[in-house]
Design a protein around this nucleic acid. Structure first.
Lengths: 236, 236
DNA sequence: GAAACCCTTCGGTGGACGCCGAAACGTCCG
DNA sequence: CGGACGTTTCGGCGTCCACCGAAGGGTTTC
């Protein structure tokens, strides 16, 4: 005889409006900091924090600390699938398959992680610069002499980044690509240069970035980095 | 953009131990009266009633009134599937596919619905007797003269059933077969005769019945009713 | 009609929990 | 180091709700 399942933990996790909003926001596969979830649900930061621990304890959501931020995401595909099937019960509306939202796709392509480039653009550039010897090491991403020269030619304020108080380079784990990308003072300088040179422009809302034609051309010609058009990107 | 789903209603429905027990009991596809569910969960009848209305309002469970009983069952296969996928989250144990339990299969084959035969045996006999002209009408199941003769020959106390205060015949909707079977005073008399003649025996626990070899032979030879061996019955 | 039975509805009570602001903790920046 | 920032923890408050017993409605049986 099959052992009984205890639905109470998962059920309780789903039973409040704020947590329902959280899960809906995370259903597209994105990771989001606690504060963003709090404002989206219209609750205070402290309340959101409590809700999030409930979701984590229930196994629906995972947390990852990054600097002074804490990113929350669905625990896995099976969670998304379960919520999907539950959604069928919630409203009689037909199911739309689980997939990244259009906005999530934009963010996955290119975005600002605070002051440095992230997404496929950020990880792609980092990979290319490691391959070409501009950056050394997998985790440290130390700036080499060749890298200093190359980036200076690009117009990046390398000297300012080196003399800054904050660490020159830092590896920041990308939550869509699951690989590190360049952060720290140098990462910030690179991001500033990309914006100033018009290689990327801020997307209408939030952290998203549009890679301009000139930027797309630059990264392809210089580092062989081929960025897929967001709108046409193959998902999943 | 996909409209947000509201998980709160379903979530709240799952969030208490008593309701979790109810759903586990109903997961095998059986229908059960409110009282049975109440004692199984260890709560009072009134509390159970409130829980059940919550489950019905959430769309997880349906209620069907039968006489002075009220049978509750899962609302459908999709509900079972959703609970199944949720169960994966609840415990890490691997899933055993959704299917009728062995006990449920026994009950579906033959059982007592209070004092009259139900399950495939009950509906099969009723169908056969309607076909052969012993009973008339789809809903009333009135006893014909030929039926009185035939049943009397079987040893059924037809006269006692006709003169009883309660209605001679009544159609009782079968919850496994979803078709009517014979109830009322005559149904009771038939059930009594089947037990006395040794055509069926009470299963060890509760309402379940075992059809004996003599009973199996009788129904096949007399009415062409072929009952599948419970243990070998194909499910689903 | 009367009694037995099943179930639901109705009050009332106690505990659980969602909510917030204040304070503490850790990180980043100059 | 000092200030800003994101997040969590802590106390306290108000509400919701799970629970029960008693009462009421409906059905079956005698």
């Amino acid at each position: 005889m099959a052992r009984d399942r205890d639905f109470t933990v998962v059920g309780r996790a789903l039973s409040t409006p704020a947590r329902s909003v959280f899960l809906n926001l995370l259903l597209d596969g994105t990771s989001r900091p606690a504060g963003e979830l709090a404002t989206a649900a219209g609750v205070s930061a402290s309340t959101a924090s409590e809700h999030l621990t409930v979701l984590v304890d229930a196994g629906l959501v995972t947390a990852r600390t990054q600097g002074r931020h804490r990113y929350y995401a669905l625990a896995g595909q099976d969670v998304a699938a379960a919520l999907e099937s539950l959604g069928v019960l919630a409203d009689a509306a037909p199911v739309s398959g689980y997939r990244r939202s259009r906005r999530a796709e934009y963010l996955a392509a290119a975005r600002f992680c605070y002051d440095h480039l992230a997404g496929r653009l950020g990880t792609g550039l980092t990979d290319a610069w490691v391959r070409s010897g501009w950056l050394a090491g997998r985790d440290e991403l130390a700036l080499t002499d060749a890298g200093a020269v190359g980036l200076r030619e690009l117009g990046v304020d390398v000297d300012g980044a080196v003399t800054a108080r904050r660490p020159t380079t830092r590896a920041c784990l990308d939550w869509t690509e699951r690989r590190p990308h360049l952060a720290g003072a140098l990462g910030s300088a690179v991001g500033t240069r990309f914006l100033d040179a018009g290689w990327v422009t801020r997307h209408r809302s939030g952290r998203g970035l549009d890679v301009t034609d000139s930027g797309r051309l630059l990264v392809r010609e210089t580092w062989g980095l081929d960025l897929v058009e967001p709108g046409r990107a193959r998902v999943r």
